[in-house]
Design a binder for these strands. Structure first.
Lengths: 209, 209, 209, 209
DNA sequence: GATGAATGAGTGTTCATTCAT
DNA sequence: TATGAATGAACACTCATTCAT
C-alpha cells in the first residue's frame, strides 16, 4: 500500500530527519519539503505522523525478527546460536543505525498514541523479540550447551536488556567503546555466564543460587 | 535556591505528571494548577520547563551517585562491592521509581536543549556513573576477586548498559520479571561472568557469597 | 506570493490596526479575527508578526521609490525636479497616510529583528531614498539651477531629514500646520536656500516661487 | 522626590539600557539588577516603567528648554539667536546623546499611556519647544534680521522639524554625515532661506558660509 | 492520487506590577 | 523605605491535520 516511489521517498527522508533531530523536532511540513512531495501526500500514505514512525518501526523490526528466525532455522547448538545472535544483533544495528537510533531513542517517549499498549501490533512484535531470545536459550538448555540457573524466559529478558542497554547508551553517546567491541565483550561475558559447569572437574561446585 | 515550599511542590507535582503522561505531554500550566501556584512561579524558580526536568534529573542522579560512592567507601572487596552495587542499583530504582522512570523514558528524547552535549553538567554526571562502575571493577581486578578479560573501562560500560537496559525495558513494560528478580539474576550472571577462573584447579577458590 | 485575497485582507487589516494602536499594541490574534482568517494563516503567509510589518514597509517604500524615479525620468531641470519631489513627497504621504504613519511612528522602535542592520534589504531601500534625493540635487548642480555650497550627498541627507522630520512631527501631533502648507513652505524655503547666488548681478533673477 | 542615590542609580542604569536595547526590550527586573536595587524599589520611586521613561524625558527636555530660554535671554538679534539655536541644538544632542536617543527613537511608539495626549505635561513641554522656536523667529522678523514669507508659527514648526528629522535619521543610522557637519549645514541653509531680501540694496551681503 | 492553503487549539514563555514582610 | 517572591493575563508562534480542488 505504501510502496510507491513517493512513499519510499517519504520514509527515507523521515528516517533521516528523525535520526538527525529527533521525532518530536522533525515536522511533517519539513519532511514533505525535503521529500519533494506535498504535505497532504504524507497523510494519504501514512495517515498521520505517527504512521510514518510506525512504518519505519515495523520495517526495521521485521528485518530484525526475520534475521533471528533465520539464525534459529540453521539448527546449530544453542550455544552457537547465542553466539550468532550476538553477532547478528550488533551487525544489524550497524547496518541500520539510522533507523535503529530512531527506535531506540525516540520510542516510545515521543509517540502520541500508545503503541506499547497490550495487544497493539507493535507490542506484539517487541514481545516476539523476547520470545526468539527465549528460544535460543531454550535450545541451549535442551542440548546442554548452555547452563541456565534461572528460568529461560527471565534470562531471555535480561539478555535482551543487556543488548538493548549497551546499544542505547552507545547511541546516545554515553558509551565510548565501539560497537564491534561491545559485541565481542557481550558475547564473551554471556558465554562465560551461561557456560555449562565443569561437573566432571568439580562435581560439587554450585555457584550462584 | 529552589528549596522553598513552593519549589518543592512544583518539583513533586511535575515529577508525578511527567511520570504519568510523559514530559512532552505535561504542560506547564497544568503543573502550575496542580501544584497550586501561578504559572509564572514555575519560571521564577526554574526558568523553563526544561529547568524543572533538569532539577529532577540532578537530584535523582546525585542521590544515585552518592549511594555508589558510599558503597565504594566501605572498602569491601571488588566482588562484594559489585554485588552490593547491583543490589543498590535496583533498590534505588524501586525507591525512586517515579523519578527514575522520567529519566529513563523521557531523557534525552524530549529535551529541547542539549543536555547530553559534551561538557554539559548532565553529561558529566552521567559519565561519572561509568567512572564509578569502573572503580568497582578495578578494585576487583586489583584484589583478584574479579576476572576481567577485557579493559576495565569497557567492561564497566557494558555492565552499566546491562543494568540500564533491563530497567528501561522493565519500565516500559517489555520485561515481565519483577525488579527484584532482575536484580538477583543480573548479580548472579555477572558474578559468574567475572568469576576468577578455574576454581577447580585452585581448590581454595570460593566464588559467590 | 502573498497576493491571495486572504493575504491582502491580512495586510489591510494589519495596516489599520497598526495605525490605530501601534505595532506593539496590535496582537496577531486580533489581526486574524478582524481579517476573518485563522491566526495560523498569518504565519502561513508572513512567517511572523514582523513579517507583516516588513511587507507593509516594502510595499510602501517601493511605491515611494518608484514615484521618485519617475520624477527623475522626466528629465526636467534639477530645480524643477526638486520642486516636483517636494510635492510628490507630501502627496504620497497624504495618499498613504495610514501606512506612512506606521512606518514613521513604529519603525524601527518596535521591530524585534534588526531591519536597520547594515546590509538588510530594508536598510538598502532606505539608503536608496537618500541616493535618489542626491541625484535630484546633483542634476541641479550640474545644470546650474541649484546652488549647493556643501557636498551633494550631505545636502541630500538634510533635505531628506527636513521632509522626514516635518512629516513625523505632523503625524505625531506636534505640528499644527496642515500637510499641504508644510509642503509649500518646505518647497519655498529649500528653493530659497539652494537658489543660484548673486541675483544682484543678474537683476532678472527671481528666486523662490 | 526621586533624588536619592538609589533613584539616580535607577535613572542612570535605565538610560543606559533603554539606549542600548530600546525601551521595549529593557525589562524592569534587568534594570533593578543592574542598578543594584530590588525591583520593588523602582516602583517606590517611579510608580511604573513608564514613570522612569517620563522622568528621563522631563529631565532631558527641561535642560533643553532652559538652554533655549537662556539663548533668548541674551537679547541678541533674531538672526544671531537662530544661529545660536542651531548650534545649541546639536551641541545639546551631542552632550546628551544617550538620553536624546531614547526620546527620539522610542517615544512615543513604545509608551503604554498617552503622554502625547492634548493637555498632558509631556505634550505641553513639547509644544513649548515650538513656542521657543517661534519666539526666535518672531524676534528676527521684528528686528528685520530674518525674512519670513510664511507665518512665524508655521515656519517655527518646519524649522523644528528639520532639526528633529536630521537628528533622528542620524541617530538611527540613516544619515552618514557627522552631527557637527549637519549643524553647520542646517545653520547655513536656514540662514540663506530666511535671509532678508534686498540683495540689490546690499550687494556685498553674502550670508551663510 | 496529489496538492498545499488553511486551520485553531495549544504551548512555553514574558514581564510589569503587587504586597506581605 | 526597601525587598523580591509571587502573580497571571497576555503573547507570538507551532504544527499535525483537513479538505476543496
Amino acid at each position: 500500500m505504501s510502496d510507491t516511489a513517493r512513499s519510499r521517498a517519504i520514509l527515507a527522508t523521515a528516517s533521516r530527519l528523525f535520526a538527525e533531530k529527533g521525532y518530536g523536532n522533525a515536522t511533517t511540513s519539513e519532511i514533505a519539503r525535503a521529500a519533494g512531495v506535498a504535505e497532504g501526500t504524507i497523510y494519504h500514505h501514512f495517515g498521520s505522523k505517527d504512521g510514518i514512525f510506525l512504518t519505519i518501526f515495523d520495517e526495521t523490526i521485521e528485518g530484525y525478527l526475520a534475521g533471528i528466525e533465520e539464525l534459529l532455522a540453521r539448527g546449530a547448538t544453542g550455544r552457537e546460536t547465542l553466539s550468532a545472535l550476538t553477532r547478528f544483533q550488533f551487525d544489524y544495528v550497524s547496518r541500520h543505525s539510522e533507523r535503529y537510533l530512531i527506535l531506540l531513542r525516540d520510542f516510545p517517549a515521543d509517540l502520541t498514541a500508545g503503541p506499547l499498549a497490550e495487544g497493539s501490533p507493535q507490542k506484539k512484535k517487541l514481545d516476539r523479540i523476547t520470545e526468539l531470545f527465549r528460544r535460543v536459550l531454550a535450545r541451549g538448555k535442551a542440548d546442554g550447551t548452555l547452563h541456565l540457573p534461572f528460568p529461560v524466559r527471565d534470562t531471555a529478558e535480561i539478555l535482551r536488556g543487556s543488548f538493548y542497554g549497551a546499544i542505547r547508551l552507545k547511541m546516545t553517546g554515553l558509551i565510548r567503546a565501539p560497537l564491534p567491541r561491545l559485541a565481542r565483550m557481550l558475547e564473551s561475558y554471556w558465554m562465560e555466564a551461561l557456560a555449562p559447569q565443569h561437573p566432571a572437574e568439580s562435581p560439587r561446585g554450585v555457584p550462584g543460587g
